[in-house]
Amino acid sequence: MRPHRVGAAGLALALVWAGASCAVIPTGGPPVSYEEQVQGDPLRKPYVRVVATEPRSEWTPQQVVSGFLNAMASLDDPGWKIARKYLTAEAARGWRPQVGVTVYDKGQIVKVPLPPDDAMETEVTLKGAVTGSIDGEGKYRARSRPGGESNLQSFPLIKTPQGWRITEVLNVLLLTEADIRRSYRPVKLYYLDHLQKGLVVDEVRIPVDPAQDFAESMVRRLLDGPTGTLKDAVSNALPAGTELRRVFTEDDKIIVDLNEAAANAISSGARGGAVDAMAAQIGWTLNQLTERWEVEVRVNGEPFYPDGSALRVGFDR
């Protein structure tokens, strides 16, 4: 038995050695041509986020307000849970920031001497110039005549055991131009004109949500329909009830996976016009992300048409 076992161990060593020698990178060989592929993933553009920080008990009233302004700009938590921590419990309950956004520039917290140690309430004023607003639908309206610098908002604060807290705040998000540039990307949504012949642009601002790809945010916003200003003038070829399942890339294509309601487009409209219109809407909207990629629409992960053929919106490459 012994010589046999020694032989077996030798065999094992030889196998391992052979395996190890295979792993060494070959240094010879002819040149191999490389077929250029589309670089990177257009759905994953880099971006910068503000991360909200919780208030600290030792902060001065000015620092609390400054932290609150930053927390409002953070899109990490959809319910502004951290921003609410800057408010008193009562104010936090009543705050409805989803109503809209007021955009200002040259923001500055008015410097006042620190309140005395035994002060229980104080007020901090934010100065700045309002430059525009974004309504609940994402429509950006620039202030036609930019106003001068003025007091934007006064924040009354009281002292609590946890530090200074804001007692009263407007139901609106106060964001700077820089915040808007960073977190609210302007997107053109494409809808059909009343003749169903051409596409009309509806420009909105879409917040960059780190929990989903921006392309998904775009398609979801497209599905929500046009904004109030265009509502009566344009129509949406995407059938009612359509929902987005996922947007992802596959073989240099952007795949838009919709739910089964999207297939209703085949039967509506004349000569499949609705399908073409729907594809054009999605294609042109996503075209803003990348000009070189093809877009394919699928239903529940399957090709769009029941016979198995795909619905593609091509762009010249």
Partner: peptide, 16 residues
């Protein structure tokens, strides 16, 4: 991630 805990709001992250 770049952050400064001493200054309120000085906290940035890239991507997800």
């Amino acid at each position: 991630i770049i952050k400064n805990e001493a200054i309120p709001g000085e906290y940035r992250a890239t991507n997800e």
